[in-house]
């Protein structure tokens, strides 16, 4: 095992820990925007793992997957944000808010 492979494995371990922490925030997050943001960070973590795995397996095609994944994450976040705003406009008048 070369030094570079070891560094890549350590990086994958660190990103896995950060994915776990993000998942905890996704579960306990008190409001819906919290969950949207943690999903965003989750997909960025997945993108980073894909990039490092493409280095480990010497397979350049995984970078294309990362490119598509960044686009899909963007569309998902936008959809959730518009859904939040629309829901607010529908229930205008009751100030209870929701979580």
């Amino acid at each position: 095992m070369s030094l570079f492979t070891l560094a890549a494995y350590i990086a994958i371990v660190l990103i896995s820990i950060s994915t776990l922490l993000t998942l905890i925030r996704f579960i306990i997050g008190p409001s819906l925007p919290d969950r949207v943001i943690s999903l965003d960070v989750f997909s960025a973590n997945l993108l980073a793992v894909l990039a490092i795995y493409s280095v480990l397996s010497e397979e350049k095609a995984y970078l294309n997957v990362a490119l598509i994944m960044s686009l899909i994450a963007f569309v998902g976040t936008m959809t959730f944000a518009y859904y939040l705003v629309q829901k607010r406009h529908k229930h205008q008048g009751d100030d209870s808010g929701y979580s």
């Binding site: 560094a7 990086a11 994958i12 660190l14 994915t19 993000t22 960070v41 980073a48």
Partner: peptide, 15 residues
Amino acid sequence: ILAGSIFMLIASIGM
């Protein structure tokens, strides 16, 4: 790569 993964870890600790 190591610096980048440390930044990702910092981000999720902040989360």
